[in-house]
């Protein structure tokens, strides 16, 4: 009987595309993946690539409160008020999937304090291959793995690898040193993902984060259309 007032106060429905004032909220993209695969480096590179054309902010979910946030601050990829850290109680996957309330608070606070925003990147704490973001928290998710973590990860699959909207195979420059077969990783990923896109990237050379940035721009175009 009270459902006819959906926009009183903070949005009650997390996936609601509108803010309490009726304006469209920012697109939220989650970045997840195992420890050390290069999530934070990818977030930093994305911020540098997009910050001049978009209004953006970042939420980090490190296992220890502020490590990733501090990294982004040190790298000065965004002003400090655009970076928020969420504590996860030693359970980073819970904070992005099962109980997203603290992350929702963080993204809404960012929109309130530094908005209007076009894009919010939500970075998960390093976790396992089953950790995915709730659709109530993000509109799209990127799963970041790397060649050094073993070239059999795409074949093994798991929810992150198979269902993420974008799979990033990072650190391709290291493949010759760790004996990873890039062609095999690409083929396995393709087989696992039923047509969903895969990007192989090295942030140390070549086109860097350009492919991921292009994918983000496409997402944003679809979101604001």
């Amino acid at each position: 009987m009270h459902l006819d007032h959906p926009h009183h106060g903070p949005a009650a429905v997390s996936a609601d595309a509108h803010r309490p004032d009726g304006s469209r909220r920012a697109l939220r993209i989650g970045l997840g993946g195992p420890v050390g695969s290069g999530k934070t480096a990818t977030v930093a590179a994305l911020c540098r690539a997009l910050r001049d054309e978009l209004s953006l902010a970042v939420v980090t979910n490190d296992i220890y409160t502020r490590e990733d946030a501090e990294f982004l601050l040190r790298e000065a990829v965004l002003p400090p008020e655009r970076i928020a850290a969420v504590e996860t109680g030693a359970c980073p996957h819970t904070a992005i999937r099962d109980d997203i309330s603290a992350n929702l608070e963080a993204v809404e606070d960012l929109e309130d304090t530094v908005g209007p925003l076009d894009l919010i990147l939500v970075e998960s704490g390093g976790d396992n291959l089953t950790a995915t973001f709730s659709k109530g928290l993000v509109d799209a998710q990127v799963f970041v793995i790397d060649v050094a973590g073993g070239d059999d990860i795409p074949r093994k699959g798991g929810p992150g690898v198979t269902t993420a909207d974008l799979l990033v195979v990072n650190k391709t420059d290291l493949a010759p040193y760790v004996g990873s077969d890039l062609a095999r990783m690409a083929a396995d990923a393709k087989a696992q993902r039923a047509g969903l896109p895969v990007v192989l990237q090295s942030l140390r050379g070549g086109t860097g984060v350009a492919d991921v940035a292009a994918w983000v721009r496409e997402r944003l175009a679809a979101w604001t259309a």
């Binding site: 969420v86 504590e87 109680g89 359970c91 904070a95 099962d98 109980d99 997203i100 309330s101 603290a102």
Partner: peptide, 11 residues
């Protein structure tokens, strides 16, 4: 304990 209200991150 799984009610999604943020308690898991507090000790």
């Amino acid at each position: 304990g799984r009610f999604p209200a943020g308690g898991h991150a507090h000790s």
